[in-house]
Each structure stands twice: as structure tokens, then as C-alpha cells.
Amino acid sequence: MSAATAVRLDHLAIARQFADAPQGWVVPPRFDPVERWYARLHAADNHEVWLLTWLPGQQTELHDHGGSAGAFHVFSGTLTEDTVGGPAESPRVVTRDLGEGAGRRFGSHHVHRIVNRGADPAISIHVYGPALTRMTKYRLSPAGLEIRAVERAGAEW
């Protein structure tokens, strides 16, 4: 596949297609009281689709997607995304709430955290292209955005 084909792939449209057909999900959503639950719904040559569930208070750490672009769609509930931008030594955080039916595309250098700050469980569909091979986790410190860990597919998730 050419780079031009990858650019034209609409990750959010794919997420919405999966959200519109929950009867076709290969696994039903589950909620884990200890940590976020996730399962891969689909894998193709140029993208993969994941189903995630979020109980109130569950969240990701600040992370990127290892060079993959993507999107997520909120199937139910409300999720909050904290996006980190600007220079690493003086980053700024933008917060947005996304309710049921909302979605968001992101590029290959996107650093964010997703949190269920609401009172109700949430379900979301995430699409990454190409498929995730690694994720870098970050922390915000007085020195700015710092790498905390790099996780690899098949090893840490």
C-alpha cells in the first residue's frame, strides 16, 4: 500500500462503522473494576480496531501511539481527553469532553490521556493505522514532558 492510500484512510469513519454494528463485535464489552478492559475487534493490513470500556475514574496514562495515526469514537457514556501540545519543555494541556456519538481523529505524533470523569460507565471504539507496535508513556514534570516508559505490542499489552 502506498503512503497516499494510508493518508486517505478515515479512521474515525471506521470507528463509527463498528459503533453502528455492535452485533458484529467479536467479543461483547466487559467492565473490569480494577482496570480498563480492552479487546481487538478487527485487524487489517493498514489498521486495527479496538473496543475499550471505562468505569468511572479509569484512565490511560499520558501516551502516544508509536507513530500510528488514528481516531476514537465514544459509543456510550462520556470520556475526557487531555491533549498535550507545544514544545516538550513547556507543554500545554487542552481538555475536551466527548459524549456518546462524539469522536476525534488524531495524527501520528498525538500525545494524550483519556479519562472517564463521569458517573457512568463508558465504551469507546479506537482505530489505529498502521497497527500499534509500541506506545510511549509520558509524565508532566516541572521540566516539561518526560518519557516514562516505552511499551511494545505483544509484550506489555
Rank of each mutant, 00 (worst) to 15 (best):
D82P: 03
H42V: 05
N116K: 11
V26R: 14
A44T: 04
G70M: 05
A4V: 06
A102G: 05
L145H: 11
R96S: 05
K137C: 12
L12R: 01
G86Q: 04
R134Q: 15
H47W: 11
P29G: 04
F72S: 03
F72W: 15
V26P: 11
L41H: 01
Q59R: 15
A21S: 14
G66E: 13
I123Q: 00
E81Q: 13
S108M: 09
P87M: 02
G101Q: 03
R96L: 05
V150F: 11
I114R: 01
A122Q: 02
L132D: 09
T80E: 04
E35L: 07
F18T: 08
F31T: 06
N46A: 07
P28S: 10
H73G: 03
P22I: 01
G118M: 04
S141I: 05
A39Y: 00
A149R: 14
H73I: 01
V84K: 09
H42K: 13
A122M: 04
R96I: 01
G66F: 10
A153W: 12
V111A: 05
Q58C: 06
A69C: 10
G86H: 08
S2G: 14
T60G: 05
L132C: 10
L52Y: 00
I14L: 15
A88Q: 04
A43T: 00
I114T: 13
L41Q: 11
R148N: 08
A39D: 00
R104W: 10
G85R: 09
L41S: 00
E61M: 09
H65T: 04
T95Y: 05
P22E: 07
I14H: 09
M135G: 07
W50V: 00
E146W: 04
T133N: 14
G77I: 03
L79T: 03
P22S: 07
R104T: 10
L145Q: 14
H112G: 12
L62V: 01
D20Y: 04
V94F: 03
W50R: 00
G103N: 12
